[in-house]
């Protein structure tokens, strides 16, 4: 019970907080809740037969996690990685994924009333944007990470074998264990 309370409070303190990162000229925000850590770019091992935005896998202190280049993910041009390039490690539904971004800026408080829904444009990438956060002098595109990665899932699931759901279950159970 105590733990639950603490957890709730913790979630509350993370509410409306976004980690902002840049991709080219735009500034994106992602829920601080799902962010595990930010690391510099490191050696990526390429993996065959994956979409080009999946750059490969990296070794995060003994854990092997996939990394996704967000520029390529949003169909931008590939840009050489620099000192500024960062990997944001996020945990989504118990799965760790690294997001390669041009640079990480800061953690911002954006209350719900300052968030406006994106315009309803066809054929745009807006489906991955949950809303647009208004700041004094600029805007932040708030990433809908749930949609982003669940759509990936669907895309990927199309070519997956029948035994995949079983794996899903097991990873789900794992994450439950962790939270205990």
């Amino acid at each position: 019970m105590e733990d639950e309370k603490n957890l709730m409070e913790e979630e509350d303190t993370q509410k409306d907080k976004y980690l902002t990162f840049s991709l080219g000229d735009e500034v994106y925000g992602i829920d601080i809740r799902v962010v595990i850590e930010i690391i510099g770019i490191q050696k990526i091992t390429t993996v065959p037969e994956v979409p080009d935005y999946v750059r490969g896998i990296i070794n995060l202190r003994g854990k092997i996690i996939p990394v996704v280049d967000m520029r390529l993910r949003f169909r931008r041009e590939y840009r050489e990685y620099t000192d500024r390039t960062c990997v944001i490690v996020v945990e989504i539904n118990g799965v760790l994924i690294g997001l390669i971004v041009d640079g990480v800026s800061e953690v911002l408080d954006i209350t719900e009333k300052n968030v406006v829904p994106p315009p309803d444009l066809k054929a745009s990438q807006n489906k991955y944007i949950r809303g647009i956060g208004k700041l004094e002098s600029s805007v932040v595109l708030l990433l809908d990470w749930e949609k982003l990665f669940s759509e990936d899932d669907q895309e990927l699931m199309g070519s997956a074998a029948g035994d995949e759901p079983a794996k899903d279950d097991s990873s789900g159970a794992e994450s439950e264990n962790k939270s205990e």
Binding site: T45, V47, V50, I57, I64, I65, S159, A160
Partner: peptide, 27 residues
């Protein structure tokens, strides 16, 4: 191989990955 990637890798002949002595990943 991370689940996110393994879903695509039915035919690649890669069954897993491991870490080498220098910390790099080998398939």
């Amino acid at each position: 191989v991370p689940q996110y990637i393994s879903r695509l890798m039915n035919t690649t002949g890669i069954s897993g990955c491991t870490l080498l002595g220098d910390g790099s990943i080998s398939l």
